[in-house]
């Protein structure tokens, strides 16, 4: 059903810390690995070893350069995956009901056996979170690793999304954003987590934590107090210095 469920209490999602992300792409690889071997059609590659390689990924990491007005430029690494929006336009546009949002935990999924591969949902998503698989011809998107987080066959510590589990910098957090007391929600409040393109009205569940403010290097030189200030020589020495400096070939 492509009618959105009424807002639920549980909103599972990710919080991505742009301060700690080092841009290593480990989450990209872990995501591709898990989602190729498990739920749904594998994430295929085309011409993987050729001149024009291309493939399906559910998570991509951009790097941006941000130039503040009066400070050095900052490089910020920026993972981008489905935000499991509360008001998901990708769901309502789907003609077949293949795209849906789960009422119980808010995860947005695609029923691949009902998808006709029209691509309209990918057009409707502002965040580029959906990619049509060129081999299976069905729409692929982040599943929030629904086949890990509830999976009793996995050890407790692995019941978290593959990208979160693998991130070496601890830049990805998983939890219930619908619960005001959850650790992940407190992190969002503390660090001023924000929505991407809020003007779209999609009400993303996933949040991004901004880079922390950079401290300023103090205008202070440890050796400065020990150096005698250079004063300009006067009288004969001054005249000598000026004359010599003026000679051709003299350095100034």
């Amino acid at each position: 059903m492509t009618t959105l469920p009424p807002p639920g209490k549980v909103k599972l999602g990710l919080v991505i810390d742009l301060d700690t992300c080092v841009g290593c792409h480990a989450c990209v690889v872990a995501c591709k690995g898990w989602n190729t071997e498990n739920y749904g059609a594998p994430l295929s590659d085309q011409d993987a070893y050729g001149a024009d390689p291309s493939g399906t990924f559910l998570n991509r990491v951009h790097s941006y350069e941000v130039q503040p007005e009066a400070a050095p430029a900052q490089i910020i690494h920026f993972p981008r995956s489905c935000l499991h929006c509360d008001n998901a336009p990708c769901v309502t546009v789907c003609p077949t009901g293949a795209s849906y949002k789960r009422a119980e935990d808010g995860i947005v999924l695609v029923n691949e056996s009902a998808c006709i591969g029209c691509g309209l949902c990918a057009w409707a998503c502002p965040y580029g979170a959906r990619e049509m698989d060129a081999a299976a011809k069905v729409m692929k998107k982040c599943t929030l690793c629904v086949d890990r987080i509830y999976n009793d066959n996995l050890p407790e510590e692995d019941r978290t999304p593959a990208c979160v589990r693998t991130c070496p910098a601890g830049a990805r957090h998983f939890g219930d954003l619908g619960d005001p007391d959850s650790a992940i929600n407190q992190l969002v409040t503390e660090r001023g987590g924000f929505d991407l393109m809020p003007e779209m009205g999609t009400q993303p569940v996933n949040k991004y934590l901004p880079p922390r403010l950079k401290d300023k290097a103090p205008e202070f030189d440890v050796l400065a107090p020990y150096l005698t200030p250079v004063t300009e020589a006067r009288g004969f020495l001054g005249w000598l210095d000026r004359t010599l400096s003026a000679l051709p070939g003299a350095r100034d």
Binding site: R60, S63, Y64, E65
Partner: peptide, 18 residues
């Protein structure tokens, strides 16, 4: 607005994801 990084300064793409 897409990256939410506008508060810090002018944003430009430094390296694409692929």
């Amino acid at each position: 607005t897409a990256t939410g990084l506008g508060q810090i300064g002018a944003v430009r793409s430094f390296a694409p994801p692929h």
